[in-house]
Design a protein around this nucleic acid. Sequence first.
DNA 1: TATGAATGAGCTTTCATTCAT
DNA 2: GATGAATGAAAGCTCATTCAT
Lengths: 208, 208, 208, 208
Amino acid sequence: MEVSKKIQGDAFERIVDASAELFAENAFHSVGVREIANKANVNISMISYYFGGKAGILIEILNRFFDLQLGTLKASIIETDTKEQSIKRMFHNIVSMIRNHTNICLIGFSDLPNNVPEVYDLKINKTNQMMEIGNQISTKFGIDFCRQEQNHIIGPAMMSMLISHFTHKNFISQIYKVEFNDEYYDSYCNTLADLFLFGITGFLKKNE
Amino acid sequence: MEVSKKIQGDAFERIVDASAELFAENAFHSVGVREIANKANVNISMISYYFGGKAGILIEILNRFFDLQLGTLKASIIETDTKEQSIKRMFHNIVSMIRNHTNICLIGFSDLPNNVPEVYDLKINKTNQMMEIGNQISTKFGIDFCRQEQNHIIGPAMMSMLISHFTHKNFISQIYKVEFNDEYYDSYCNTLADLFLFGITGFLKKNE
Amino acid sequence: MEVSKKIQGDAFERIVDASAELFAENAFHSVGVREIANKANVNISMISYYFGGKAGILIEILNRFFDLQLGTLKASIIETDTKEQSIKRMFHNIVSMIRNHTNICLIGFSDLPNNVPEVYDLKINKTNQMMEIGNQISTKFGIDFCRQEQNHIIGPAMMSMLISHFTHKNFISQIYKVEFNDEYYDSYCNTLADLFLFGITGFLKKNE
Amino acid sequence: MEVSKKIQGDAFERIVDASAELFAENAFHSVGVREIANKANVNISMISYYFGGKAGILIEILNRFFDLQLGTLKASIIETDTKEQSIKRMFHNIVSMIRNHTNICLIGFSDLPNNVPEVYDLKINKTNQMMEIGNQISTKFGIDFCRQEQNHIIGPAMMSMLISHFTHKNFISQIYKVEFNDEYYDSYCNTLADLFLFGITGFLKKNE
DNA sequence: TATGAATGAGCTTTCATTCAT
DNA sequence: GATGAATGAAAGCTCATTCAT
């Protein structure tokens, strides 16, 4: 299941793209290789050829996701930022990341299949790394959480908050007729950053 | 796929319980009817007999989830509560609900299979209902969100925040050695309620 | 891959029969489950249902073969027989066994697939048992081979000699126009028994 | 499927060697071209390029086998030999051949795939030739079998007897701890030659 | 209710082979 | 000669469901 071909044709990338789109919409196990091959316009065998099997595609996608996530967080740390600037910058960066790589991020943030050992291991491993980065960021932000437990509560909570909109997007757009453009997401980032910084109380005060 | 709920043997309930456990751990599509029947200690045919098919079990579970969620939210509205009391009560009630019905709630909150029409329709329908309830609650809470868009941002964000711990639980317990007891969840509720009420700023001030 | 269903329909036996016929004619790996299911007039899934997979059928056939072989050898030991009577009786019994269960015996005697672990283990295990029985028979026959090595030479040599006709049968019948009836196999047994007892020298003398 | 034998690189021979090793251990159909190409350290396409397909390799190996067998038998006929010398010489020559070309001989003697037409035809054709040679040898040996049927019984029986050790070798070496060296095979030849010449009766008398 | 044999469509993966380079 | 991407068919197996009992 090793994926280390030096030169990969278009097919490789087409498979990744098609899979990302499909896995983002429906659960990994409910997407068939036929469907992927069809959407990517490649022969079914190419999936095993390039990725060693269906799970290999997911691994590739997850590796991309974790690299993306790590890069985004690291890029959000600017020494001279105030606490408020830091949060806003991070929120904007994360939302940008999600908007630019929606499928990959939806897959990365979603419940991954625990019954595929390689995926499970990767998830454990990377979650660990993320937690460490999270701790480093907290410290650098000057936010030194008094009790360690609260760190593993607030980190995931923040991330879940940010991604939640994108998982509910389709449903929301069926109920409210909103246009999801740059303006919307600017407002979105600010709303959540304010909420995260000052809570519903501060948020309401601001909007009085 | 109508299910006559009047007279149902133990088998019915055993199937629901087994399925909830399995669906909570792994995606709906990756759980087989054989696995369910095995865990529930019933004959495979009983699944079609009682639920009209595998999807029927999920529908049953989802109906239970939405009833649960609705009941919990309604029970959280106490006229005499202050804003802070309201939020804390609601957070405690929701966390209690999740702890008492973890499997059902994990399934309900998770990405449901969009490629099963009946499930999709139910989801759309109930999400709609939830949004209405959310609006009612907001108003009753005295929190009248100035811009409607922000309502559909904050609602899901809050829910995602609360459930996020339970979806990450297994991974967290592998990294930090924490005991998830009553005390822990008391602290958990308060941490998130404070965060939601006063933001990270207020939260840090409180813990000084 | 356990095969221990108490009551098995006709399908079970039809699968065994069809497989025996096919495996006897062509190598295990070159016979497909579709071909088997077709010949046995059952649904493909029945193979996994009853035998846990294609290899399970081979295991079933091999178990039958080894039981058959063991029973035949044991039944050939009559205390009062002379050495010559013993050999002739054994040869006749073995040839009868092969004629009555040609397919199973051809499979059992042929080169079995070593790359199927379960088959390999069974083969090792049963070959061991056969060797022990062979030793017992040798002793009971009053034929106490002076050097142990010669025992594992002569045993397999004798068996190979007896089965060789059946593996070459199709080719022989295309060259010589012989009718393989009871009379033929009587002569066949006697020829080989004489060869085994007195060698080509004694055999030629007898036929002078 | 014609193979131009004039100019062939190392690759050609490496493919034959690798295939011989693999086909000797496992059935033709269970060995894949990838496995062969891998072991031979050549590109997969080279197999089609040189041999026109997987079956072409087997044909090449079989042709080598039949040439070998024919040569060995012909070389065993020495006018001045006594009957006993003849048999012993032939047995030693055959065993030498098998020891020097074990893989090729195991493949040649084993049950060949009947469902590959080209192989089947070759087998029929060459078996025919062998039978003729067998008859010639019989006559030259002064062993003029009274009844023709007995010729096609004794010929294959003798060959099967000689090869049987090599097919069982791996299993035997797991049960008895024997070293298969020159000394062993000298004894092996003599044992079988004596058995073939004088039968078990004469054999036992000799070893008294 | 409950059983377990049976169905047929579907799954992922692997096969030998071919092709353009 | 040699490469490796690409092909299409077929492999073994599993799926949810149905049926007669």
